[in-house]
């Protein structure tokens, strides 16, 4: 963490207090937005992981023939038997569902998780950069306030 501004086009030490606060607010807004997106991506990834787990533990030949409880609502279950342990129907988005073998479905979900993982990595890097930028601005802002206070007391 350095207190000298990097060559980002605009020298932030040259900005007025008001401008600086404005830039700071803008950075904070962006950061909130990005962090929210990050949490959402994380949640989506966790959901796909859950699907993978469900396929490997819930839809296998071991389960076939055994009675299971199927949730109709969060609190209402009916007994049932797994009719087909080889195929599942996967939601691929925009209201379309595709019948896949469990192997293909696993591959599909793994692909989704990897894709999200890649996005998360990119986003994390951007968030890191923004956080650094924000810290830099806060430093300069603090310096400025201190300086102006010193000038005020001196005069």
């Amino acid at each position: 963490m350095s207190s000298s501004p990097k060559g980002q086009g605009v020298d932030i030490t040259a900005l007025s207090l008001q401008q600086l606060s404005q830039v700071k607010k803008q950075f904070e807004d962006e950061l909130t937005h990005l962090t929210n997106s990050f949490t959402q991506l994380r949640a989506a990834q966790a959901k796909f992981r859950e699907c993978l787990r469900s396929i490997s533990t819930g839809v296998s030949s071991k389960v076939e023939g055994k009675p299971i409880l199927v949730p109709l609502t969060a609190s209402l279950y009916v007994p049932g038997v797994l009719a087909d342990s080889d195929n599942v129907i996967v939601d691929v988005g925009t209201g379309f569902y595709v019948e896949k073998s469990t192997k293909d479905a696993t591959k599909f979900y793994e692909g989704k998780i990897d894709e999200l993982g890649g996005n998360l990595k990119v986003l994390e890097k951007i968030i890191q950069e923004k956080t650094d930028g924000l810290r830099l601005i806060e430093d300069v802002l603090r310096q400025k306030v201190l300086n102006s206070n010193a000038v005020a007391t001196a005069s």
Binding site: I89, F96, Y97
Partner: peptide
């Protein structure tokens, strides 16, 4: 929406012609 539809399009392109596709109505 565009992103989602593109993902679906990609998914469809990898499917065999006789794959079972359902639409949620």
């Amino acid at each position: 929406q565009q992103q989602e539809n593109k993902a679906v399009q990609k998914e469809f392109s990898g499917l065999k012609g006789d794959a079972n596709i359902y639409k949620l109505v």
